[in-house]
Amino acid sequence: MVKFGLWGKKLGNTRVFHEGQSLHVSIVRVSPMYMMGIRKEGPHTLMQVAYGDVIKPNKPMAGHFASAQVEPRRRINEYRIDESFFAACSTGSEISTQLLKDVDYLDVSGTTKGHGFTGPVKRHGFSMQPATHGNSLSHRAHGSTGQCQDPGRVFKGKKMAGQHGNVKRTIQNIAVYKVDLEEGLIWIQGAIPGPVGGLVWMTPSFKKAQSLSPLLPVDAGVESSDQLTPTAKESEASDEN
């Protein structure tokens, strides 16, 4: 299985109407990825890719990008791949949205919004204590955290105040509503982790046994700029009838 996908930037949320129903969709702009090279590590094949904003690198990294004929980018990652799958591409090739054009379900990973150090009411949804009747300075406190002399300690994992958010989360089996190859946009049904402008990692759904489309050189084999998933295709067919 190809352990690969695409990075994208979350642009925001909107809604679309399908068969009289309002669907919540998240819009992601795919970040172009450029092949830096392929190397062997034991039985595995690893591909290094660069993506993100264009930067001014230091001299060692400038030489690394120059050897791959890739414009310097902010991020470099390495992924395990099936070498035959990327046989059509060479060093410096762009990996674009067409990789996911035939995928109907995605697993989307991202870093959730960070809320800093928050109390139990906001972090875990605890009820507040009384506002009056003798209560002072404990309105949003969590109350008792333990038992008696036995066990004489607080169990690990007890819900208390602490760091809220800013953790990696993966949402599985999210349906793809539409893929816009020309604009590099993917419309995903439902919410995805992270704030607007945050990076998300999109891979074909593992549980749905989805697979990537064969990678072709950019501008090769792209007939339509608006590739719709089966859900959207059925909607268009019903409108025509």
Results as ranks from 00 to 15, higher is better:
G92F: 06
K207P: 00
I38L: 09
H18S: 05
I186D: 09
W201A: 00
F117V: 08
A232F: 15
G8R: 01
L216P: 01
T97E: 08
W7P: 00
E240W: 07
G146A: 11
A131E: 04
S93R: 13
F206H: 11
K178E: 12
E83I: 05
S224P: 01
E182D: 12
W7A: 07
E236N: 03
V30C: 05
Q147E: 07
K113S: 10
E78S: 13
E234D: 07
Y51F: 15
G190N: 02
M33R: 03
K56M: 03
Q147S: 12
L100M: 13
A175E: 15
P151W: 14
H164Y: 14
P57I: 00
T231P: 08
V70M: 06
R169Q: 11
G114Y: 00
I171C: 08
P60W: 07
R29Y: 08
F65T: 00
M160H: 03
M35C: 13
G63W: 06
G110K: 00
L185T: 05
Y105L: 02
P57V: 00
V176Q: 06
S31G: 00
N166A: 12
G134K: 11
E182A: 14
C148L: 11
G162N: 05
D239F: 15
G194C: 05
M47A: 07
H142G: 14
Q189L: 12
E182F: 13
K10S: 01
K168E: 11
A237Y: 09
M35N: 15
V121C: 12
D219Y: 12
L11G: 02
V103K: 12
G5L: 08
Q69L: 05
H124S: 05
V200A: 14
I192C: 06
Q163M: 10
L212P: 00
D180N: 15
T91G: 10
S144N: 03
M61A: 09
T14R: 13
T111Q: 10
S26I: 02
P193G: 01
G116P: 02
Q129D: 04
K168G: 04
C89Q: 13
S109D: 03
F65C: 04
T45E: 11
K178D: 11
S211A: 11
G8H: 03
T203K: 14
T91Y: 05
G119K: 09
I81W: 14
G125V: 10
R80K: 12
F126T: 01
V200H: 08
Y177Q: 10
I192L: 05
K40M: 08
S235V: 13
I81R: 06
S238V: 14
V28Y: 03
H124N: 10
R29E: 14
M1V: 13
Q21N: 07
M160F: 02
Y177E: 06
S136A: 09
V179I: 13
I192A: 09
G221Y: 04
R29Q: 15
N77S: 14
V176F: 11
P195V: 05
T118P: 10
E234S: 07
L216D: 01
P193S: 03
E19S: 12
A88H: 13
K122H: 11
H24A: 08
P230W: 08
G119F: 13
Y51T: 04
Q163V: 02
P60K: 14
